[in-house]
Design a protein around this nucleic acid. Structure first.
Length: 585
RNA sequence: GCCCCCGUAGCUCAGUGGAUAGAGCAUUGGAUUCCUAAUCCAUGUGCGCAAGUUCGAUUCUUGCCGGGGGUACCA
């Protein structure tokens, strides 16, 4: 079974330019049918693609090749018939060539591209938006770390991915809600309470054997002290030599509640410092309190999907493709996490989400099938549930692995990382690779303000352009920073933009909406990263080769118009990744 | 054993059913009287192996090899 069984019924609108070319080609095929150059019929599924190489044109179509079997003609002859039938009322085509095995390569006039720059200035921070999602309600749930300890670097990657996927989907026309699921129920929370309680007893002078299964980190001691300060007068928190500390259930549950709330506040704060906020924090305990878990169990029991065996209750997930059936209530009467997960995911769909996306660590992949099974058994469509599995992060310092052990409590927290390397650098690196691959995160590299660090490479573009706009203002080329965005009253002579580097930049800007759609359709934020790197590279090359502000006033204005369009797109793309676009560096 | 991810340049990784597979780092050599050198330019015998589908496969399928993660009445 595919991990990411994506819905494919979101059709890309493509870029306006690509669509115009598509229409011209399709019209030419119809003409060729009418003229009898080709056998009339339907046009097979064809593509208008952006070729890798400039000398293959601005766009290229494989229509002749995919038509070969139907037409029973050589692709090149079909291509010739189509090219001979082209009509171009808008006059956007410079020339067409038939190349390779039968590609039709289309070269557009430079003038065809200029309106795009105006469009970017009009749309500003909305440039790149689309209605791909058509308002589909989608929930992205991510991080959802248990409130038993601080967030670590793996959570950081999940946070960056989930937040960015949410941003991208919203930009692509989905109605997005971001949610954090709090596992505030169950054994881990009890263990947390026990850990804190034992530390308290230790402080109070009792001889304690601190079990390995308890949380070892120093933060537990800090919390224990806080509990003593805040609740020291509560009777059950007094030492009682006649009672084994592990049996003081009242104290343990009081400590658990206090500790979980304290840790959760820390998590919220760390995420907020990381630039990640949620629309909703959903408590697992609230499902139990509302009886939802029991309801779900009895519901599925009545459907015959949950059955009793060996004193436990089992969910028949194997019927729906899982490896084996799974326990929902153990023979000691305690529910498993799977039970509340079923109720939780049912609740998501009941809340009206048409699509549910969970971001999990890759070590949880075994859960996908059972959750899908529970959705299908409940009459839902498991394809509306997607799991993004985020592979592990290797934390390095100058190429050497940083020792991390959750059990000993010695690990670098997300907070530490953000403090050391900064929010922008951390987020950019987390999103620099596909989450399908493991990620090396080197603290020293992330900290460096040099070319080795991609975040500065991209942010520098934005800062450089801002500096230019400022200079233009000082020279009275522009009357204010807003002037460039005041398009209805001012459009420079864009025909002056005719350098190859300028055309390359404009074409790259034109592809941004398509890049966003691709990122949204595949749920892959690194697509935005890759785009940013190539746009930044194009810009820096242009900057080094051509002066924007020159003695030639009209040319300067046209170039400022171009680079401020670059600034807008860089800003929009960085925003999707949750990275800031500084005005100076 | 079974499941998931990965295998592309010395290293870290993008990418694609098609026409000459890219970037960063590293190496070596260059560029600044000039809008920020956190920059640019030059520099490369690489798609793990083997079958299959296809007009065409690095891309899709299967098998194998190698790395990582999972495989509890744990979370």
């Amino acid at each position: 079974m595919m991990t990411l069984n994506l819905r494919t019924d979101y059709t890309s609108k493509g870029t306006p330019m690509k669509n115009r070319v598509r229409e011209i080609i399709l019209h030419a095929v119809e003409n060729a049918f009418a003229k009898g150059l080709l056998k009339a019929g339907t046009v097979p599924e064809m593509e208008i693609e952006t070729p890798r190489h400039d000398h293959h044109g601005d766009f290229s179509s494989n229509v002749a090749m995919v038509s070969a079997s139907v037409q029973k003609m050589a692709p090149k002859k079909i291509a010739q018939a189509i090219v001979d039938s082209i009509e171009d009322p808008g006059g956007i085509i410079e020339k067409m060539e038939i190349a390779g095995p039968g590609f039709i390569n289309i070269f557009l006039k430079k003038s065809a591209w200029y309106p795009l720059l105006t469009a970017i200035h009009h749309k500003k921070d909305a440039f790149g938006r689309s209605d791909l999602g058509q308002g589909t309600k989608v929930q992205v749930e991510f991080v959802s770390a248990n409130p038993t300890g601080p967030l670590h670097i793996g959570h950081g990657r999940g946070a960056a991915v989930g937040d960015s996927v949410g941003n991208i989907l919203a930009f692509a026309g989905f109605d997005v809600e971001k949610e954090y699921y709090i596992n505030d129920s169950g054994r881990q929370i009890r263990t947390l309470g026990l850990s804190a309680w034992l530390r308290i007893c230790e402080f109070l002078g009792q001889d304690i054997n601190f079990p390995e299964t308890c949380y070892q980190g120093d933060y537990i001691r800090d919390i224990a002290r806080e509990i003593m300060d805040a609740l020291g007068d509560v009777p059950c928190l007094k030492p009682d030599p006649s009672l084994d500390p592990g049996d003081n259930h009242e104290a343990i549950s009081m400590c658990a509640k206090f500790a979980a709330e304290k840790i959760l506040r820390g998590i919220r704060e760390d995420l907020s410092d990381f630039g990640v906020t949620f629309d909703r924090w959903f408590s697992e305990q609230s499902l139990y309190d509302a009886g939802r878990v029991d309801d779900v169990i009895s519901h599925y029991r009545s459907l015959g999907v949950i059955y009793e065996k060996d004193g436990a209750l089992w969910f028949a997930t194997e019927r729906y493709g899982d490896e084996k059936d799974r326990v929902v209530v153990r023979n000691n009467g305690i529910t498993t996490y799977f039970a509340s997960d079923i109720a939780y995911h049912m609740d998501k769909f009941h809340r009206g989400f048409n699509r549910v996306i969970d971001v999990w660590g890759a070590d949880h992949h075994g859960y996908i099938n059972r959750i899908k099974a529970s959705i299908e058994a409940g009459g839902g469509d498991p394809d509306n549930f997607n799991v993004i599995l985020v592979q592990l992060v290797n934390l390095l310092r100058s190429g050497e692995p940083v020792a991390m052990s959750t059990r000993s409590g010695e690990f670098v927290t997300l907070k530490d990382i953000v403090k050391e390397v900064g929010r922008d650098a951390a987020r950019f690196i987390f999103l620099s690779r596909s989450y399908d691959s493991g990620l090396d995160f080197d603290l020293e590299v992330a900290k460096q303000q040099t070319s080795e660090n991609p975040v500065y490479y991209v942010q520098y573009v934005h800062a450089r352009i801002c500096a230019m706009l400022l200079k233009a203002c000082e020279q009275s080329l522009l009357t204010g920073m807003d002037q460039m965005e005041d398009i209805p009253f001012f459009t420079p002579h864009l025909l002056l933009l005719c350098e190859p580097e300028e055309m390359a930049l404009i074409k790259l800007l034109a592809s941004f909406p398509h890049v966003v759609e691709k990122a949204a359709a595949t749920l892959h934020p690194h697509v935005i990263f890759t785009y940013l790197m190539s746009l930044a590279s194009r810009f820096h090359a242009y900057y080094n080769q051509h002066k924007v502000i020159t003695d030639h006033r009209e040319l300067s204005l046209a170039r400022l118009f171009l680079v401020s369009a670059v600034k807008i797109v860089i800003g929009n793309a960085l925003g999707l990744l949750g990275v800031s676009a500084p005005e100076r560096m």
